[in-house]
Simulated scan of single mutants.
Amino acid sequence: MRFVSWLLTTAVALATAAWLVDGVRFTGPSSGTAELEHKWLPLLLVALILGVVTSVVKPVLTLLSIPFIIVTLGLFLLVINAAMLALTGWLAEQLDLGFRVDGFWAAVLGAVVITVMTWVVDRVVGDDRR
């Protein structure tokens, strides 16, 4: 149950980022039921890819970046989160899932939106991971 809750929370955060940030998007129809029918599976798959990338690559990158994180008082973590989103976008493109992240600033804004939305959804729904 925890996995499903996490996956849906991440999917909501990704959908919000795609809606709010210009350079983060899913390809395909842009309104109505056709959009929902076309994008629900890619959205869940991209959320899963983001979770795997965040679980596997982010800890290694964070460990290697400790000096930068200390010097920037933690702001470099935002760059790492943006890199994770950009890597997710690249992997999704390679798998032809119809998800794109265009550029560094789109990745930064998308990472901020995803982080905030994940926090909000966890607070509203109730984070059962504790």
Results as ranks from 00 to 15, higher is better:
residue 58 K to W: 04
residue 86 A to K: 09
residue 87 L to M: 04
residue 61 L to G: 02
residue 86 A to I: 12
residue 76 F to S: 03
residue 111 A to F: 00
residue 58 K to I: 06
residue 76 F to N: 04
residue 57 V to R: 02
residue 102 D to G: 08
residue 56 V to G: 02
residue 58 K to C: 13
residue 61 L to D: 11
residue 56 V to R: 03
residue 58 K to G: 06
residue 76 F to K: 00
residue 106 A to W: 02
residue 107 A to P: 06
residue 91 L to T: 15
residue 64 L to C: 02
residue 85 L to W: 03
residue 71 V to P: 02
residue 72 T to S: 15
residue 104 F to C: 04
residue 83 A to E: 06
residue 61 L to W: 14
residue 55 S to C: 13
residue 77 L to P: 00
residue 114 I to L: 07
residue 100 R to T: 14
residue 85 L to K: 10
residue 89 G to A: 01
residue 67 P to H: 03
residue 102 D to F: 09
residue 68 F to T: 04
residue 98 G to A: 05
residue 83 A to K: 07
residue 82 A to E: 08
residue 52 V to N: 05
residue 95 L to T: 01
residue 67 P to S: 09
residue 115 T to R: 07
residue 108 V to P: 13
residue 52 V to M: 10
residue 110 G to T: 02
residue 86 A to P: 10
residue 59 P to Y: 12
residue 110 G to V: 03
residue 101 V to P: 02
residue 95 L to Q: 01
residue 82 A to K: 08
residue 113 V to L: 01
residue 68 F to D: 03
residue 72 T to I: 08
residue 94 Q to H: 14
residue 88 T to L: 05
residue 89 G to D: 00
residue 81 N to E: 11
residue 58 K to T: 10
residue 91 L to S: 11
residue 102 D to M: 11
residue 94 Q to S: 12
residue 81 N to H: 10
residue 56 V to T: 04
residue 94 Q to M: 12
residue 112 V to R: 05
residue 107 A to G: 03
residue 64 L to V: 09
residue 56 V to K: 01
residue 53 V to C: 01
residue 73 L to R: 15
residue 93 E to L: 11
residue 69 I to N: 00
residue 54 T to Q: 07
residue 114 I to S: 13
residue 50 L to R: 00
residue 60 V to F: 15
residue 89 G to K: 07
residue 60 V to A: 14
residue 106 A to H: 06
residue 74 G to M: 07
residue 116 V to Q: 10
residue 62 T to F: 12
residue 69 I to T: 01
residue 78 L to Q: 09
residue 50 L to T: 05
residue 77 L to E: 01
residue 94 Q to D: 14
residue 78 L to I: 15
residue 91 L to I: 15
residue 70 I to R: 11
residue 95 L to V: 11
residue 113 V to I: 11
residue 115 T to S: 11
residue 103 G to V: 03
residue 59 P to R: 13
residue 110 G to I: 00
residue 103 G to C: 03
residue 78 L to D: 05
